[in-house]
């Protein structure tokens, strides 16, 4: 089970009223390499991964939901006081006519989320390599959003999230080493 804490993982701030940035952020909300995909991918793969790395997939998967909440907070803050006209100018008219300013699991181009974005091959090496690739793709997506954004406070939160992908990738690489290890050779720390 999971329980809720009434706090964000990181203090999210946004300094400019710029709904266009909300549109870009949807890539990390409902996109192929976004936080929802990440959370669902790891928390689903963990049932069939070797016991030694179940804890890691559980903890990283849980953290991805905290990231999803941060992205949602950014989108919420950037759109909550925007008029229909401002949303139209931001390229969000198509979103508005279906959802008003409700959040939805779309990518930046408005394509709805699909389970086809994630994989579970049941082969531990294939799954962990998929996870490493997913982290690098999420890191790259954060870079491209930072490149498009001139909001310093928003970029501060995005840099935090990008850095998390680096640490996650590191841990998944270590997980590959752990499950590749010969049972008879003990790793000394």
């Amino acid at each position: 089970m999971w329980t809720y804490e009434k706090k964000l993982m990181y203090p999210v701030k946004v300094s400019t009223c710029n709904p266009t940035l909300a549109k870009y952020l949807m890539e990390q909300y409902g996109g192929a390499d976004g936080e929802l995909a990440a959370a669902l991918r790891y928390l689903n793969q963990r049932y069939t991964i070797p016991d030694k790395v179940i804890g890691l997939l559980t903890d990283i998967g849980t953290e991805e939901f905290a990231h999803l909440e941060m992205i949602a907070t950014m989108i919420y803050k950037l759109t909550k006081d925007a008029t229909p006209e401002q949303l139209r100018k931001a390229g969000l008219a198509e979103h508005y006519v279906s959802h008003d300013s409700a959040l939805f699991y779309n990518n930046a181009a408005g394509v709805p989320f699909t389970a086809a974005y994630i994989q579970a091959k049941g082969d531990p090496i294939a799954d962990l390599y998929e996870d490493i690739a997913a982290e690098e793709k999420a890191r790259a997506t954060y870079q491209w959003i930072i490149d498009q954004s001139d909001d310093p406070d928003l970029n501060d939160g995005l840099r935090f999230l990008r850095e998390r992908e680096i640490v996650h990738s590191q841990r998944f690489r270590e997980a590959v080493e752990i499950i590749s290890e010969d049972r008879d050779q003990k790793k000394v720390f």
Partner: peptide
């Protein structure tokens, strides 16, 4: 609290592989 809990998250991921 966010800072202290962040250290906990980081140490937990580290301990998951160490």
């Amino acid at each position: 609290i966010q800072a202290v809990d962040f250290v906990l998250f980081e140490l937990a991921l580290y301990l998951d592989t160490h």
